[in-house]
Design a protein around this nucleic acid. Structure first.
Lengths: 141, 141
DNA sequence: TTACCTGCAAATAATTTGCATCAGG
DNA sequence: CCTGATGCAAATTATTTGCAGGTAA
């Protein structure tokens, strides 16, 4: 897929820009997150990379966060990570509390309200967290 | 304050409804959260209750969560707690990333959009988390 | 060659559990 | 009384740190 190539170039560019090195571990983590269709925990990333040490996953994800390649998604009690808006259009999640299935939500209204609230409160916006929880049709039956 | 009396009655009623006991520890935690003007971590609650054991704070907050007297607020990497909507009108927070000051946000539009999103996605809503982060006027200077 | 990066071990922090005792209703 | 609640100790889990050797640039 052509698109994947472009994303990988962007990944390298962003690492270089922040003076970090392009390594196997970081590349692998990037690929795992690119393939995942939902935010993953450190452990979930690790499970897909048995050849890598867990500590290295912690450290590399931290570097990817600093390089703004990855972003942090607190979901309930969990710390999850997914690719930043440079790789995936900005969105939020609607999560089923029973089966954990996660749907991506794109809603421009919310972004607008978010900005308005910041202006009203004299806040220079940095980021926002927004997660919806419910029970999905499947689990209701 | 008359209002505090009413809230305390509600607190007892809700505990009884869920078959939990009304104890000193729970009452004290409730008072700490009633006085606090922002969500607190387990440790922050504990610091105000030196006579109580830290483990008891964990356990009692857990009971208060189950009784829906307290609700969970994940904020960045922190697990915070505050009184539920039965005691404080439903709201969200705008937090300064530098000084940590927390402003309460009440916005009915957001609640409406939230519901719409659930309907669109065939989700029976249970809860949502929504936190805005930025830099406040004070810290910008 | 010069950092940064990684693996391994170990420390620290956060949260949970077991058990005996205490206390609410 | 009976059962949930508490204090204390200890276990478990999650995350971070130190250090020596490895590797990208």
């Amino acid at each position: 897929m052509q698109n994947t190539e472009r994303k990988y170039d962007e990944f390298e560019k962003m690492l270089r820009f922040s003076n970090f090195r392009i390594t196997q571990t970081k590349r692998r983590i990037f690929e795992v997150l690119l393939t995942a269709n939902k935010p993953l925990s450190i452990n979930e990333v690790y499970k897909q990379l048995p050849e890598t040490h867990l500590v290295s996953v912690y450290r590399s994800v931290d570097v990817l966060l600093k390089a703004r390649i990855v972003k942090f998604i607190p979901q309930g009690f969990k710390r999850l990570y997914e690719l930043s808006d440079s790789f995936k259009a900005h969105h939020h999640h609607a999560v089923c509390e029973l089966c954990g299935i996660s749907k991506e939500i794109k809603n421009t209204e919310i972004e607008k309200i978010m900005d308005d609230i910041c202006v009203e409160n004299g806040l220079k916006p940095t980021k926002h967290h927004f997660e919806i929880f419910g029970i999905c049709q499947n689990c209701l039956n």
